[in-house]
Amino acid sequence: MLVSSAALEDALAAADELASAAATGNTERVGILLQDGVDVNAVNRFGRTPLQVMMMGSTAVAHLLLKHGANPNVSDCHTGATPLHDAAREGFLETVQILVQFYANKNATDNRNCRPIDVARENGHLEVVSYLESL
């Protein structure tokens, strides 16, 4: 199949925009771009999906991306962290819960061989620790 380079550039620009909207917690913009058919799992020019770079405290963005089929089990190419690791490190309990609800793997390990629960404990987020323990 032939794909023009212009079309590829357009797709990358759209992926960039969706990732940036997710990273700034702009729920409205994320919604519009998804409605316009931008691929929820497309990587931006830094090789990351919107879920990987989203504003972790924004439960609205997390929910919207996951509802549209975002893969919760992508890991960072350099640290091995999944979005669940990142939400756990920063202590955003509700985001952790949404990720788990959409089948994020609670036993995923990063490059240091840490699970999300280990990262939460390391940073003193006890509510996140007890939630992940309860699963």
Binding site: G25, T27, M55, G57, S58, A60, D86, E90, F92, E94
Partner: peptide, 12 residues
């Protein structure tokens, strides 16, 4: 970097 701003916090 703190991954939550006041706008998001208020909306939540």
């Amino acid at each position: 970097h703190v991954d939550q701003d006041l706008k998001t916090y208020l909306n939540k």
